[in-house]
């Protein structure tokens, strides 16, 4: 019973963590470069629609994912245009991007699809033999293909950020943009690139929701997951492994609260539902000072002429 319960928590938690992890990793690059993109939620919604729509019309989940990522990239560029080129306040433009994505995805869905429609999408795979191993079989070898992609992207993101010269530029631009500028790093270019990567990852996260997890699209399908991803970037101290830890912790807490309901453990469900959020706040509060600071220039539009 206890073992079944724990396996149940992990099995329920992993699919939940994927969209948070993907969007969080993308937002990490964005924030590392000094741009605070609150519009992740909107990018996810629009991409979830684009992915769904491509699968619905053409039938290819692969093309759906590519299209969703392309849509995410465009949304990232849009955020760049507003917050880097026009130097608008990042918080406000992020909220604008969120509303734009929400409204546009909902409207397009109403006009071109209409009501509830399910798609085949991407199903979980069962790796032969290995998935029959007790406990670890179902956990490690019978997941959705995108789950493996998301977790493989953690070391990739880490390598990109800490081991490549591009990653160094991203970090430099996000910490002291003026210094990076004087040594010839284009702050604008690096920030645009980071926003596009963030958009592509949020796009993949959205596609995961509609194509792999729900197999349908509905208005507000993300239901706040994009905002949680932004919070997880702080939680993970702008590091891929930390974000993964945060995504897992949050998802497992969610899975736990669902299972205590499913198993009829006598506990008020209203409190169970907020456990994951309380947990994140508590961990945030206690880890804040002990670790490295975030990107110093986060949230500040860069202006060459302004030496403030």
């Amino acid at each position: 019973m206890i073992q079944e319960f724990i396996v149940g928590i992990i099995l329920g938690g992993i699919p939940l963590s994927v969209s948070l992890l993907l969007a969080g990793l993308g937002e990490m690059f964005t924030q590392r470069s000094g741009v605070f993109n609150l519009g992740v939620e909107g990018i996810m919604m629009l991409s979830a629609f684009i992915g769904f729509f491509v699968v619905y019309t053409i039938g290819s989940p692969f093309l759906g994912i590519i299209a969703a990522m392309a849509g995410g990239a465009l949304m990232g560029l849009l955020m760049g245009l507003v917050s880097i080129t026009f130097k608008a306040s990042q918080g406000i433009s992020g909220i604008g991007l969120f509303m734009f994505g929400w409204g546009l995805s909902g409207t397009l869905f109403r006009v071109y699809v209409g009501g509830v429609t399910t798609i085949k999408g991407i199903n979980d795979i069962y790796i032969p033999v290995l998935s029959n191993i007790p406990i670890i079989g179902p956990i490690l070898f019978s997941q959705n293909p995108l789950v493996y992609v998301a977790y493989l992207l953690v070391p990739v993101a880490s390598w990109l950020l800490f081991k490549t010269s591009w990653g160094l530029k991203v970090r430099a631009v996000g910490t002291t943009p003026a210094a990076a500028d004087t040594v010839g790093v284009s702050v604008v270019k690096i920030r645009y690139q980071s926003l596009v990567i963030g958009g592509v990852m949020a796009g993949l996260a959205g596609a995961y929701l509609s194509i792999a997890q729900a197999h349908l699209f509905a208005d507000n399908i993300t239901a706040g997951r994009g905002f949680i991803a932004v919070a997880l970037v702080y939680f993970g101290r702008w590091k891929p492994a930390g974000i993964m830890g945060g995504a897992l912790l949050f998802s497992m807490a969610h899975s736990f609260q669902r299972l205590i309901q499913v198993y009829g453990i006598n506990f008020p469900y209203e409190i169970a539902v907020i456990i994951p959020y309380i947990l994140v706040i508590v961990v945030l509060a206690f880890t804040w000072k002990s670790q490295s600071l975030g990107p110093l220039a986060l949230g500040k539009p860069y202006d060459r002429e302004f030496r403030g």
């Binding site: 329920g12 699919p15 929701l209 997890q213 729900a214 349908l216 509905a218 239901a223 669902r258 309901q261």
Partner: peptide, 10 residues
């Protein structure tokens, strides 16, 4: 809908 699906899965 996603959360409802997850609960159904559990």
């Amino acid at each position: 809908l996603v959360a409802a699906g997850e609960i159904a899965k559990s």
